[in-house]
Amino acid sequence: MSTPNTPDTPNTRTAVVTGGSRGIGRRVVTRLAADGLAVVVGYAGNQVEAEAAVKEVEAIGGRAIAVRADVADEHAMAALFDTAEQTFGGVDVVVHAAARMPLAPLAELDLADLDDLHRTNIRGTFVVDQQAVRRLRPGGALVNFSSSVVGLAFPNYSAYAASKGAVEAMTLVLAREMRGRDVTVNVVAPGPTATDLFLGANDEQRVAQLAAQPPLQRLGTPDDIAEVVAFLASPAGHWVNGQVLRANGGII
């Protein structure tokens, strides 16, 4: 775990971002920091990238720490949130971006991969959300991640899409359970986005096909998705609640 580069103040808004060392989560970290939030970068194992994310935040004058924690381990996640509160004084935004994405036809997917995916994508979301709703201060926001593939039904994505369908269901229920708390709960469901995870899971031909599908005729970028998250996390987005935002450039 790293330490913050400057002393904190009581009025700092703080974000916890799981999966914050790479991809969309990494861009969310720097985008929220640019809005003045202190950020806890949650990561599973890549300490080098997590510390690099912290340095990016510090380079723009922000504050961040990196904390290693398995999102599906309730004790580890409780400790991460404890650290956020002890370091920055509280938690105002939680962005749960950590996920697995093994791809194969349903008939061929190894069930061990299915179990690992469910542990991270479903149990992990449940565990992170439990901590979020226990800790978020009034005016706060919880943002989970789904995927537009839930509706697009691409071949080879059955397990991943099923897990993200579960994320959408629990998030929409949770938004209603938070009545009276002044905390918003939403899901961002990106379409094909140019991350290492996506590019590593698809060959060049498939990437080109997916990039041609949106009317905007390109893949999404981590910046595109981070802007949506930043809006939902901001006071300007606080009237958006209990929604699935399909940020995919118009694929239908």
Score class of each variant (00 low, 15 high):
residue 147 S to C: 06
residue 135 R to T: 15
residue 135 R to I: 06
residue 142 L to Q: 10
residue 137 R to E: 07
residue 151 G to Q: 07
residue 126 F to D: 08
residue 140 G to E: 05
residue 141 A to H: 06
residue 126 F to I: 13
residue 143 V to Y: 11
residue 140 G to Y: 11
residue 131 Q to V: 01
residue 142 L to M: 13
residue 130 Q to D: 11
residue 150 V to Q: 08
residue 127 V to I: 14
residue 125 T to F: 10
residue 145 F to Q: 05
residue 139 G to R: 12
residue 131 Q to K: 12
residue 125 T to S: 15
residue 123 R to G: 01
residue 136 L to T: 09
residue 128 V to Y: 10
residue 143 V to R: 06
residue 137 R to V: 07
residue 139 G to N: 06
residue 126 F to V: 15
residue 131 Q to P: 00
residue 149 V to A: 01
residue 127 V to E: 08
residue 142 L to V: 05
residue 145 F to N: 02
residue 120 T to D: 00
residue 143 V to T: 13
residue 148 S to Y: 03
residue 140 G to S: 05
residue 121 N to M: 01
residue 147 S to Q: 04
residue 144 N to S: 10
residue 149 V to K: 00
residue 150 V to C: 07
residue 133 V to A: 02
residue 139 G to W: 11
residue 129 D to K: 13
residue 148 S to E: 12
residue 122 I to K: 00
residue 133 V to H: 04
residue 141 A to E: 08
residue 126 F to S: 12
residue 123 R to L: 12
residue 141 A to F: 06
residue 135 R to P: 03
residue 141 A to V: 11
residue 151 G to L: 01
residue 144 N to R: 09
residue 142 L to S: 06
residue 126 F to G: 02
residue 152 L to V: 04
residue 127 V to Q: 12
residue 152 L to N: 11
residue 132 A to N: 11
residue 120 T to M: 10
residue 133 V to W: 04
residue 139 G to D: 08
residue 147 S to H: 00
